[in-house]
Amino acid sequence: MNKTRFLSLATAFEGGLIGVAYLLGVWVGIDPWAAFRWRADAIALGLLGTLGLLVFFGVLYRCSWTELEKIKRLLLDILGGVLASCRWYELAYVAVLAGVGEEILFRGVLQPWLEGMWGKLPALLLSNLLFGLAHAVSPLYTLLAALTGMYLGWLLDAGGERNLLIPMFVHAAYDLAAFFIVAAAYRSERTA
């Protein structure tokens, strides 16, 4: 896949999730942006939350477990070349779009809607089972994505007041860091 196609697909898919969130929100009576608050403390919590997720990523990335190696190989084979061909601002664009699109759907609409029906813990589990399935590359990757989603769902309320900005920030910052790592690994592998 070339860079132009990748950016177009990312825009259509991740941007489309914003539209899906709005439509689902209208259907279930939830404003997707109701819990979004632009606040400095949310950015600070986002930075701390990103560090936690990056530590988790770093530990997993250094593991030599066969199933994790398969995921790394798959990411390098599918995304390595295209991520390495992107400029930093193109990677930032896709990361922000993914953070906004996915979080507005899963944490802005699905999680609060499910909370209204079944309570906080079942909503956290179910919305992130769906989040994991939306990232179903392999069974282990699905599980890791679901766990990441649960972390993002927990961060939604981390500041004491529900704020969608926190998981959006963490998701975007984490994706950007992961994009840089995959691109660097791809470049390193090609020069070796």
Rank of each mutant, 00 (worst) to 15 (best):
D41R: 09
D41N: 13
D41E: 12
A44V: 12
L48C: 14
L48T: 10
L48K: 11
G49M: 13
L51F: 06
G52I: 08
L53K: 02
L54P: 00
V55L: 14
V59K: 03
V59Q: 05
V59R: 06
Y61F: 13
R62N: 13
C63F: 15
C63R: 12
S64H: 15
S64C: 14
T66M: 15
E67P: 15
E67Q: 15
E69Y: 10
E69I: 06
E69R: 11
K70S: 10
K70C: 10
K70V: 15
K72Q: 06
L75G: 01
L75Y: 09
L76W: 02
L76H: 00
D77E: 09
D77R: 05
I78V: 15
L79P: 07
G80F: 01
G81Q: 08
G81N: 14
G81S: 11
L83R: 06
L83W: 07
C86Q: 13
W88V: 02
W88I: 01
Y89Q: 05
Y89C: 00
L91K: 00
V94R: 00
V94Y: 01
V94K: 00
A95E: 15
V96Q: 11
A98S: 11
V100C: 12
V100D: 11
G101F: 03
G101H: 03
E102Y: 11
E103R: 13
L105M: 11
L105K: 01
G108V: 01
V109T: 07
L110E: 01
Q111N: 13
P112S: 04
P112A: 02
W113S: 05
E115Y: 12
E115M: 10
G116I: 07
G116K: 06
M117I: 15
M117R: 15
G119R: 07
G119Q: 10
K120D: 14
L121E: 14
P122G: 03
A123F: 14
A123T: 08
A123Y: 14
L124M: 09
L124I: 04
